[in-house]
Amino acid sequence: MYGEYSEPFSYRDDRIEISVEPEGASFLYRRVCDGRVVEKIIADEFNLTINPVEPFHLPEKISRFLEISFRPVILKPGSKKSIYLTFPLEIGVLLGKGTSYDLLDIFSLSATKYSLYGTPDAGQITRWHECQGFDSVPATDNRYEGVLYLTMENQSSGFIEVSRAILSDYGMQIWYGDNVSLTCSMKIFSHSTAETFIINRPLNPGMKSSIPLYVALKIPVVQRKGHFMEHGLS
């Protein structure tokens, strides 16, 4: 399903139907997902990209932080550990080419749940996702979930238990191919503080980079180094 299209096409599986078909001098974009139908007329020739995008826009934009909750991992002082997690996806349908894109459609098969990281007065609302944590690349359905490769580094002087990672939407670069992937690192400073970074690197060679939705929506982004987690790691 993911890829670039400039000719009429159709895709169908058990839950999604997407097609662009000629209709007179124009084209009809049609998407059916779980019974919900979206139809739009594309007036001219088109370049259409379907790719996974950051999971922050549906059902409405409430949070810009992704919280991944996983089985606790204990790290000794100075140690480093990489694990594979999963993260939810939204599917963006974008019109355009090169550096100019517009959002045509967005939908998701993943159920959305929100959570509070920290306290009501000083915390952050997060898009919450739970997964186990794996030592090898887990089998995922790339319509629902992507694989998050997280490297944790304990820079503190004590044993630290980690069971969640909070990632900011700033510069969230997703890659797609056989899998959908995201690569991150976490520097742990203490039991309650850490910093997470999104690394612009695919999980496997040959993967294509997704067009982030903030590019399509033309949202100016202040590039930050990382996201500081200050309300605990477990």
Binding site: P59, I62, T112, Y114, S115, L116, I125, W128
Partner: peptide, 8 residues
């Protein structure tokens, strides 16, 4: 229910 927070 989507909007009911997981935590708290």
């Amino acid at each position: 229910y989507t909007y009911i927070l997981k935590n708290p």
